[in-house]
């Protein structure tokens, strides 16, 4: 089972979930949606999803003008609320997408609950969601006079989170393979920009035939597409929505 650095709780807490398969099943939004009443699998799923997609939430909170420390507290408080609220019935009414569900809930939270100071400490001080890797770079995005609206910023950060996950997984998959350096190079070709080093150049660099590079890149691109779809699938209710969600994210990035 691949090591997930964010994995705090042990999966064995949920019972005899088979290794590997259980890990996958618990990050599926539709599992949450399917859950009727209490379900530890759904609970775990939602928690894992929150752990992955905290950045856009944090970004939104900061965009509202809160300072970093307060924003962290609010983010934790928000997730604590989401995870405590086991009422998945209402979750299911919200058709389909985790992204919109979280945003809608967050707006509600920012409008109403944040005033209640008790909410902020709701997590009991426990760090439920590790908010790692907040850099000073982020700060500039949040300045209020930035032209991007809060919603748009949220969607863009969401898109970046998805892409980051996909590339992390690609890297993990090639870890230990003799071809890892080659794949790292080929990753840069994925955005289809015409100016990047050509396949012929890479072939020379690695002492392989161009045909082999072509095959390798083709396979990489297919794998990338599969992983991207999987990653998006984790956050929508049905496979039919994947393309639409991707297009939405593209539009957000192009705005």
């Amino acid at each position: 089972m691949r090591a997930d650095p964010d994995d705090v709780t042990s999966l064995s807490a949920t019972g005899s979930v088979p290794a590997g398969a259980g890990m996958f099943a618990t990050t599926h939004w539709s599992v949450v949606l399917e859950a009727q009443g209490e379900s530890s699998a759904a609970q775990q799923a939602l928690e894992n999803l929150c752990r992955t997609y905290w950045r856009p939430i944090y970004g939104f909170v900061r965009r509202e003008g809160t300072k970093p420390e307060e924003a962290k507290d609010l983010t934790q408080g928000f997730f604590a609320l989401i995870l405590e609220r086991k009422d998945f019935q209402s979750v299911r009414q919200e058709k389909g997408r985790l992204r919109s569900f979280l945003l809608a809930s967050l707006k509600h939270f920012m409008a109403n609950e944040r005033r209640d100071a008790a909410t902020i400490k709701r997590g009991g001080g426990r760090t439920l969601i590790p908010l790692d890797g907040i850099t000073s770079d982020d700060s500039d995005e949040f300045h209020r006079s930035n032209m991007l609206s809060a919603d748009l910023l949220y969607d863009r950060r969401w898109a970046f989170t998805v892409l980051d996950r996909v590339f992390t997984r690609l890297r993990e998959e090639s870890h230990g393979s003799a071809n890892a350096p080659l794949l790292e190079r080929l990753n840069t070709l994925l955005s289809d920009e015409p100016d990047r080093p050509s396949q012929a150049e890479i072939a020379r660099e690695f002492g392989m035939t161009e045909n082999a590079i072509k095959q390798a890149f083709h396979r990489l691109r297919q794998r990338y597409r599969q992983l991207l779809r999987e990653e998006v699938a984790h956050t929508v209710a049905t496979p039919a929505e994947i393309e639409d969600e991707l297009r939405h994210l593209i539009t957000a990035l192009r705005s």
Binding site: R156, F167, R254
Partner: peptide, 16 residues
């Protein structure tokens, strides 16, 4: 902070 220092939108389009 773009992934792979590449254009995110184009990356997603490739993914489509």
């Amino acid at each position: 902070n773009s992934p792979q220092q590449s254009c995110g939108a184009c990356l997603l389009e490739t993914g489509l």
